[in-house]
């Protein structure tokens, strides 16, 4: 469990993190979103005890990071923005070193082996870290974080630099780990949040602008019952005919045969529109519900924040 209360970070007069509070329970994966410079990394650094907070408290599995740092840090596995690796060590030597400073005594070799297998780096275990590619380095960083089987994982952009197959593997791994742990992950890839997280916090300029569960988020994404229509033929009277339909509120002509049709009520008007299209032989190419993407929600939240 991670409990963040009124966390604030000031650099001189600049307030980098402004009084944020949230809680992540066991078994939850929190997606931490925000534009560059929003304060994601700073927040994670304060949670992991790398940086002290100016004000506020962070509690990790019941231990206060400021009052009881050693006990709290024992519970945390942390993958920083840049994986912390010693380039002149071999992979196994490095993980052995990490096991040492994390105080792993029992079954050390087995734990190292296990985390290498989980992250798919067993095939490079005898190689120098400095000679490995970004994808491997990133996965060594993850292996390092999960090595001592921590109850809390803090992952700063875990899938960056990985190829599509590895991304899927790592997401699976995170989901799997999340079932009995508490995980915070920050990311720029919005679909990643949909796929892995159960909770979302969006921050901008050091403040929380949206805190929601995945279910609520899905409702927002369901959009306003709009239909995207693409036709082969294009004439000016199409818009007029579509608008004449009873259940249609308005039609937005995007040009070259593409239309966005908004329904009056929150119900599916696909049948009705398709019938009109077919009756008139407009050459149907595509009809689909227009969903809000997470990008839309994200931009909405952030731009409404700007207006205030």
């Amino acid at each position: 469990m991670i409990k963040v209360q009124n966390l604030t970070k000031k650099y001189g007069n600049i307030v980098a993190i402004d009084n944020i509070s949230f809680q992540v329970n066991k078994g939850e994966i929190l997606g931490f979103l925000g534009p560059n410079g929003a304060g994601k990394t700073t927040t994670m650094r304060m949670i992991t005890g790398y940086m002290p907070a100016s004000e506020g408290r962070v509690e990790v599995s019941g231990f206060d990071i400021a009052d009881d740092p050693i006990a709290a840090k024992n519970e945390i596995g942390y993958l920083p923005e840049n994986p912390p690796l010693y380039d002149d060590m071999k992979v196994t030597d490095f993980l052995d070193f990490v096991a040492g400073i994390k105080g792993v005594q029992e079954g050390r070799a087995a734990k190292i082996e296990d985390s290498m297998n989980k992250c798919g780096i067993s095939d490079v275990k005898g190689r120098l870290i400095g000679n490995l590619s970004k994808g491997y380095r990133q996965r060594i960083g993850i292996a390092q974080a999960i090595l001592n089987d921590p109850s809390v994982l803090v992952l700063d952009e875990p899938t960056i630099g990985l190829d599509p197959k590895q991304i899927i593997e790592i997401r699976e791994l995170i989901k799997q780990l999340g079932s009995e742990r508490t995980i915070i992950l920050s990311t720029h890839i919005l679909p990643e949040v949909m796929m892995t997280c159960s909770k979302v916090v969006i921050i901008n300029k050091g403040r929380i602008v949206l805190e929601t569960t995945l279910g609520e988020l899905n409702e927002k994404l369901d959009g306003d019952n709009e239909i995207h229509l693409k036709l082969e033929k294009y004439s000016s009277d199409i818009k007029a005919k579509l608008s004449a339909l009873q259940s249609v509120q308005n039609v937005n002509d995007l040009g070259s045969g593409e239309f966005i049709i908004k329904s009056r009520q929150r119900n599916n008007i696909g049948d009705e529109i398709a019938r009109v299209v077919i009756d008139n032989n407009w050459g149907l190419k595509e009809i689909r519900p227009k969903l809000n993407t997470l990008e839309d929600v994200f931009l909405n939240v952030i731009s409404s924040e700007l207006k205030q």
Binding site: Y78, P84, V98
Partner: peptide, 11 residues
């Protein structure tokens, strides 16, 4: 090498 983050967040 950003390893200070590893050292300072270790127990």
């Amino acid at each position: 090498q950003h390893t200070s983050e590893l050292l300072f967040t270790s127990p």
